[in-house]
Simulated scan of single mutants.
Amino acid sequence: MKRVLDCRASDFRQMGREQLKGAILAAEGRTVMAETVVVSQPLLPEITNAELAKAFGADLILLNVFDVFRPEVKGIVPFNMFMPGSGEQTIANPIAEIKRLTGLPVGINLEPVDDSADAVEALAALPEGRRATARSLAKARELGCDFVCLTGNPKTGVTYAQILQAIDTAQREFGGLIIAGKMHGAGTRGSVLDREAAVAFAEAGADAVLLPAPGTVPGAREAELADIIAEVKNKDALVLAAIGTSQEGADEDTVRSIALSAKRAGADMLHIGDAGYAGMANPENIMALSVAIRGRRHTYVRMAASPLR
């Protein structure tokens, strides 16, 4: 089994669910996932945020606010600043195009919304194409998503109970790698670092359990995270530690500190969110995170590797 570190575009194209999970496990905590908002005008209008994230060291691309029934990724058709009305979205399958442009596995967030959730604030209404329903998960499979992340954006009312149900639905309808968990409250009450929920997700069949990285939500401490990770790994699931509370736009030292703390706790993957500038992390922070958890060599190889390899 190749490590993610050693995989190139031709390797990723041949990987199914189990192969991708094995490659992440074999990399021993040195896998970087970068999240981007697809409806935001990209940081650099000539390219997608996904391409920029890859160029700064990301191994996996997570697309946020992606509607499977109205698929669109800003930047695939470059924005011409001197002729702003000239570039319309004409790509039928932007997932396939992002995979072609980056040479990386690409996944999307789908949100297991609980309409009866005890909300901290008003919940945002979501179209079905962003919700974790049987139809949307089947469509994600049709589009060629390599993985799906069952989680919640702010104010969406995603609960642990609904995530658990969504894992079961994804097992039937999706077929790719399943990641499940919360990186923040998503508008509902209760602890985000929930040991019982994390273990339940692993037992239900999630390939990776998403947990907030230390220091990203109040009370998320390294020692407690390490204990939960050990229990999740006993259930044969991976752990994705997420920077999802806008610290992806902090200084590089903060990002390095969070990344190393998450790796010490046992995380298999490090996620960096989309709330820097223009729907992605500060690019320098993606690189800083990558260098911190795996050094310059592997970072530079990922940055430089052509999607034609």
Score class of each variant (00 low, 15 high):
Arg131Asn: 03
Glu203Tyr: 03
Val291Cys: 10
Val4Lys: 04
Glu72Ile: 15
Arg17Lys: 11
Ala275Val: 10
Gly129Trp: 03
Ala204His: 03
Ser191Tyr: 04
Leu101Asp: 02
Leu43Asn: 10
Val217Ile: 15
Val199Ser: 04
Glu72Ser: 14
Arg3Tyr: 08
Thr90Cys: 13
Thr188Ile: 06
Ser306Thr: 08
Asp118Ile: 14
Arg3Phe: 08
Gln171Ala: 15
His184Ser: 13
Arg189Glu: 12
Leu5His: 11
Ile167Gln: 01
Phe79Cys: 12
Met183Trp: 06
Arg141Gln: 12
Arg130Ser: 07
Val73Glu: 02
Ala23Glu: 04
Ala9Thr: 01
Val4Met: 14
Pro283Lys: 01
Ile228Trp: 05
Arg309Glu: 13
Leu123Phe: 11
Ala198Leu: 07
Lys21Tyr: 09
Glu128Leu: 04
Arg100Gly: 12
Ala132Met: 00
Tyr277His: 15
Gly187Thr: 02
Ile76Gln: 00
Arg297Pro: 10
Cys145His: 01
Arg135Pro: 06
Lys233Cys: 07
Ala259Val: 10
Val209Trp: 00
Val120Ala: 08
Glu224Trp: 12
Arg17Gly: 08
Ile293Thr: 06
Glu224Ile: 13
Phe56Cys: 13
Asp115Asn: 11
Arg221Leu: 14
Asn153Lys: 08
Ala140Tyr: 03
Asp194Phe: 04
Lys74Glu: 11
Ala226Asp: 14
Thr159Leu: 03
Asp268Ile: 01
Ala292Cys: 13
Gly205Thr: 08
Asp253Ser: 15
Gly249Arg: 09
Met280Thr: 07
Ile76Glu: 02
Asp251Ala: 13
Arg264Phe: 05
Asn49Pro: 06
Val301Leu: 11
Leu20Ile: 08
Glu128Tyr: 02
Phe12Cys: 09
Pro84Met: 01
Ile24Phe: 04
Ala226Gln: 11
Thr151Tyr: 00
Ala166Cys: 11
Arg100His: 13
Ala140Pro: 05
Arg189Thr: 13
Val106Asn: 00
Arg30Ala: 15
Ala117Ile: 06
Val232Lys: 01
Lys54Asn: 04
Arg13Pro: 11
